[in-house]
Write a protein that binds this DNA or RNA. Structure first.
Length: 228
DNA sequence: ACCCAGGGTCATA
DNA sequence: TATGACCATGGG
């Protein structure tokens, strides 16, 4: 009864798109690069609800721009983004990122280079690791890259697929080879995984409504849940 | 009173 | 290379 030996990740993607009717999520087609980048930095090891609160506070304080972030001190930024946690580190990250953008004459200038070059540039920036860099490349700069994250690892683990290691570069290479080279497809694929994990997959791993029920291997969750 | 969250940096071995 | 401490708030 298993699906034909096609790509299980692509199969899952199709189902998630239909099941959740993925047209809207916290980053839509018209979300600006600033929101995407700040969100990507603030969400590090933090729940999205806290990130939204922090972004709202930045907006209300008139600090929602590269220029404003350049002027504010790290202490001031830290106070504004406090709900997202780790204010010392994250305020520094926002500030360093604002300086990066400004030094290239704005987002256009920063993004106007090959994806590989942009990624290297981002990885050399304090506070930007592989995942954050890939999110910026895919969603803000709109290059058809891939993103690996905890949700992807969880989903693929349940699907019984993946590169076989837990190193980011291995996952990235695997995703690159697995997903069609298409900007829109890759953006929607990752968005679908995020929506699925947030709305259903985490809280109810054995939910009857799970659109992936018949292709998931819930082995570890079942054993954990049964206390075995 | 725990545990975890869409990571990343820094210090050790 | 690989593992661990640390960051820090808010929700389950």
């Amino acid at each position: 009864m298993k699906p034909p030996p096609t790509n299980r990740l692509l199969d899952a993607h199709e189902r998630l798109i239909v099941h959740y009717n993925i047209n809207r999520w916290h980053w839509t087609e018209d979300t600006g690069p600033l929101d995407i980048c700040l969100g990507a930095l603030l969400v590090q090891h933090t729940s999205w609800a806290n990130v939204e609160t922090a972004l709202t506070r930045l907006r209300e304080a008139g600090a929602h721009s590269i220029e404003a972030l350049l002027k504010l001190s790290e202490t001031e930024i830290g106070a504004l983004i406090l709900p997202a946690g780790m204010p010392v580190g994250k305020s520094r990250r926002l500030k360093v990122f604002a300086e990066l953008v400004a030094s290239h004459g704005g987002f256009e200038g920063l993004f106007d280079r090959p994806a590989v070059e942009l990624r290297t540039l981002l990885l050399g920036t304090y506070g930007i690791g592989p995942e954050t860099a890939d999110v910026i490349v895919l969603y803000a700069a709109k290059h058809p890259g891939v993103v690996h994250d905890a949700y992807t690892a969880r989903l693929c683990g349940r699907l019984g697929i993946g590169p076989g290691t837990n190193r980011y570069e291995d996952w990235r290479a695997w995703l690159e080879a697995t997903l069609p080279y298409d900007l829109d497809y890759r953006r929607r694929n990752h968005a679908a995984i995020v929506v699925h994990c947030k709305e259903l997959c985490r809280t109810k791993p054995l939910c009857n409504a799970c659109p992936l029920r018949d292709i998931c291997e819930y082995v570890s969750e079942v054993l954990d849940g049964a206390g075995k």
